[in-house]
């Protein structure tokens, strides 16, 4: 069997590229990454959609072990079509497969091996040739049942592999093999009874949502303005004779009927349409309950008015009518929807603000002239003019001009940063001082801001495990409630002492009304929507809802030392002149000599000498690994390592001992050793405070480092970390994380580098700090854009708050719904307590409003 994929990688390990079938989402990527990282000997794992896993591992890791790890979590590694289809995978080291490194695309499943991929299951046997994702707006959904309906409608489209609908964000996201026809998605959504409008020219997604929401609000307001007063009159007409001697007689009943008709038919039109559609679709939802409840109340009353002889009468009385109930229910639910729509508008304003940070237009310089163009029309390489005070429209590199920029919206970093030609600037940051010309590099969804928005959207679009449960409950809930309502009717018909038909009917209607699962449907999404948007503004990006749940339950935080707890770059910590020498002189000469160098140690020296007038250096010669020589003020200066200075001074080795954790640079001139400079990686200013806050949150903090214990100890002490795991090889980081997990801890790993990626994937929650590499950011579940470790504590505290609000919301929803049902069914009737349909409607509307209001607390 030919081995094609394993090859020596740059880092010395062996690299294997495997095709992976059945992955549809980031969740799958996470599972596969985790599985591969846990194979002993694996150093680095990179899994990407549509289906590739790149693994760097030791030479003794068999390919079969990797394949087995992938298959164990439910995904497939397709074989080369030519290979023997039933050859056992674990048999030989080769496995017979050929990675996509040669461009050979897997064709079909060679043999049915392993369990089918977990959610969402593949539809048909179509392998993931090219997976594409498409997201369209969906409006008109009002509860968790609608979510199911839309998802099923989308899954019916050929080629669609998974569909998820976010009720709060009003979006449907679909993954499919091959390209997805957006019109097909819209058609499916509209056929299911919902709307998916196309954006007008120049209209952004959010404008579209805003437009839909304001149309919704004005629709509801219109109906409320008309139906509200009518219903109030009906209620007065119905109630007044009960509490006062006034008697309106027969005309009062007719007036009630005439006034209720428009309320029920026009005001409640959406409920009626929704009810009819739900029966046709065989998918019950909240409108089914409301429509049924109001129609039964209204229909009964009309019948009682027109043909009282058809209904049983009690002791010669006219059968009672319930016009006021029908009218009040319609108005109360309209009011609930209205308040909810307004609150939701406020909730999504947070994202809107984020989007508004990206300018829509840019001034592009072509030839001599400036052209004002839409940002979408800028292409990489275009020169964009930015005036002082403006936001920079694109990610790019400064080509002309000097300024400082405020990049706080993108990075969360509040201090202005100086920029000069050659420096990178991020779209969305504010140009504070000078006019700039920026050469565009990354645009649209590739830009830093675009990536942030995508992560936020993904997090909001993903469904928390709690929510998945709520959705499932909701789809069964409605038929069950209808059953309970019918049973209530039957039982009270038999049990009621007087007016059996009437009390049976009233209670059945109350059950229908109180049980609406709308609050259940919005409990989680609204909290996530508000919470993640606020997090994003603080520079905390959470990838999905499940990670948010995990983040709230983490109990140990593992921090990588270099680059995470520390700055990751050396800075000068001491100047030690030889006896009789002046410390300032030593530094001045060293800095002058090092000024032109890009070496990190040289930068540290020059930075330490900032503010000093440095003389010019001539004849600078660098000796790699040794140091450099230069002529400064006529003197021949050497700056470099112990070995370098010994050579330079022909054998005279410096006497002072090396210091653990610090790097020494020796400075000599005129053939004599003058002193040494000590540089060390120092902890970030925010580290100490961050560690203290994490401890306050009840978390253990562990420092993980490749340095020796002696070198790591001072840093740990300074940061306030008590537990240090030192001498860790990069490839062992993930193992240490897993050891902590094995002892029953929930581990958050904070890292920044490529070498942290396996540990980030292995941890329950990977958090990448913003200065980190792209790989770390892609692997981690939480990205912290601020270069401030306080963000770690902020992120965990935020997740806890969001989780708490989600639980409160579910509690609100469940209490209203489930506690309401037995009350409405008349369980407490023997004790004289009966929940009338009108109060049921009020309780139901209240539950939605309280859930949304509770979620809005997160925005503060």
């Amino acid at each position: 069997v030919e081995h094609v994929t394993p090859r020596e990688s740059d880092s010395g390990g062996v690299e294997t590229v495997l095709p992976v079938e059945g992955m549809t989402c980031d969740h799958c990527v996470g599972r596969v990454t985790k599985a591969l990282s846990s194979v002993p000997g694996v150093a680095e794992v990179q899994v990407s959609l549509p289906g590739t896993a790149r693994v760097v591992h030791g030479p003794d890791v068999p390919r079969a072990a990797l394949i087995e790890a992938i298959e164990d979590v439910g995904y497939d590694v397709p074989k080369e079509p030519g290979a023997a289809p039933v050859e056992p995978v674990a048999g030989g080291g080769g496995g017979g497969g050929r990675g996509p490194a040669r461009g050979a695309r897997p064709r079909g499943r060679a043999a049915a091996r392993g369990p089918p991929p977990p959610p969402p299951p593949p539809r048909g046997a179509t392998p993931a040739a090219t997976m594409s994702r498409q997201s369209v707006p969906v409006y008109g959904m009002h509860c968790a049942s609608c979510v199911n309906t839309v998802e099923h409608a989308l899954l019916e489209i050929p080629g669609v592999q998974s569909a998820y609908v976010n009720l709060a964000a009003q979006r449907a996201t679909v993954t499919a093999a091959g390209d997805i026809d957006e019109t097909a998605l819209r058609k499916a959504i509209e056929d299911a009874g919902y709307q998916s409008p196309v954006a007008k020219a120049g209209e952004r997604q959010l404008d579209l949502e805003e437009r839909a929401r304001s149309e919704e609000i004005s629709y509801l307001r219109r109906r409320l303005v008309v139906a509200g007063p009518l219903a109030a009159i009906v209620v007065t007409l119905a109630m007044l004779p009960m509490v006062s001697p006034v008697d309106f007689g027969a005309w009062g009943l007719w007036a009630q009927a005439a006034l209720t008709l428009p309320v029920w038919a026009w005001g409640g039109a959406r409920f009626l349409r929704g009810m009819v559609a739900s029966f046709r679709r065989r998918a019950a939802d909240m409108y089914t309950l409301i429509g049924l409840g109001t129609s039964v109340a209204f229909g009964w009353s009309v019948l009682a008015l027109l043909a009282p002889s058809w209904l049983p009468t009690h002791e010669g009385h006219h059968p009672p009518v319930y016009f006021e109930t029908a009218a009040a229910i319609v108005v109360l639910i309209l009011l609930g929807n209205f308040l909810e729509a307004r609150a939701k508008g406020r909730a999504s304003r947070a994202i809107r603000e984020l989007l508004d940070l990206a300018p829509r237009r840019a001034r592009v310089i072509r030839g001599e002239a400036e052209f004002d163009v839409a940002v979408e029309d800028v292409v990489p390489g275009d020169l964009v003019a930015v005036r002082p005070g403006e936001r920079i429209p694109v990610d790019g590199v400064v080509s002309v001009g000097r300024t400082s920029v405020d990049a706080s919206v993108v990075t969360g970093e509040s201090l202005p940063v100086a920029k000069e030609p050659g420096d990178e600037v991020l779209g969305g940051s504010v140009n504070l001082e000078g006019a700039l010309r920026v050469e565009a590099t990354r645009l649209g969804s590739d830009s830093a801001l675009g990536r942030i928005l995508r992560l936020v959207e993904e997090a909001q679009g993903s469904r928390a495990p709690v929510q998945r449960l709520a959705d499932q409950v909701a789809s069964v809930f409605v038929p069950v409630v209808m059953s309970i309502a019918i049973a209530t009717f039957g039982l009270w018909y038999v049990l009621a002492a007087e007016d059996p038909l009437v009390s049976a009917l009233v209670r059945a209607v109350a059950v229908l009304i109180v049980a609406c699962p709308c609050a259940l449907g919005i409990a989680t999404p609204t909290a996530l929507l508000v919470g993640t948007a606020r997090g994003a503004r603080q520079g905390i990006l959470v990838r999905d809802a499940a990670s948010l749940e995990t983040a709230g339950s983490v109990d140990v935080v593992v921090m990588d030392k270099t680059g995470t707890l520390t700055i990751g770059k050396p800075s000068l910590v001491a100047v030690e002149p030889m006896p009789g020498e002046d410390a300032d002189e030593v530094l001045r000469f060293a800095a002058a000599a090092e000024r032109g160098s890009e070496h990190p140690l040289a930068l540290a020296v020059v930075q330490a000498a900032a503010g000093k007038a440095l003389p010019e250096a001539h004849d600078v010669t660098a000796k790699p690994g040794r140091g450099l020589t230069a002529t400064v003020e006529g003197r021949k200066v050497f700056v470099g390592s112990r070995r370098g200075v010994a050579e330079h001074l022909s054998g005279e080795a410096p006497g002072a001992a090396e210091v653990a954790g610090k790097t020494a640079m020796y400075v000599a001139w005129d053939g004599k050793l003058r002193g040494r400079l000590l540089a060390a990686d120092t902890i970030k200013a925010s580290a100490k405070e961050a560690v203290r806050r994490l401890r306050e949150l009840g978390l253990d903090v562990v420092m993980l480092t490749g340095d020796t214990a002696a070198a790591a100890e001072p840093i740990a002490r300074e940061a306030g970390v008590t537990r240090v795991i030192a001498d860790v090889l990069p490839e062992d980081k993930a193992r240490h994380v897993r050891e902590l997990q094995a002892s029953g801890r929930k581990v958050a790993m904070v890292g920044d580098g490529l070498n942290d990626a396996p540990a980030l994937a292995a941890a329950d929650l990977g958090m990448a700090v913003g200065t980190g590499t792209d790989v770390a950011l892609e692997t981690a579940k939480v990205a912290l854009l601020r270069d401030d470790l306080g963000a770690v504590a902020d992120a965990i505290a935020m997740s806890r708050r969001i989780n708490r609000v989600v639980r409160q919301n579910l509690f609100f929803a469940f209490v209203y719904n489930t506690a309401g049902i037995p009350l409405a069914a008349g369980l407490l009737a023997p004790f004289g307590f009966v929940l009338s349909p009108m109060f049921a409607a009020a309780a139901m509307a209240m539950s939605s409003v309280s859930v949304v209001t509770n979620s809005l607390r997160l925005a503060r």
Partner: peptide, 30 residues
């Protein structure tokens, strides 16, 4: 129990079955 009470109870049972079959049955949208 009067005959019409029995009739209502039977009607309720049939209605419950119908609702559940319709919305939760094999061809429903669930």
């Amino acid at each position: 129990m009067s005959p019409d009470e029995i009739a209502v109870l039977i009607g309720c049972v049939v209605a419950i079955l119908a609702v559940n079959l319709w919305f939760l049955g094999p061809r429903s949208a669930r």
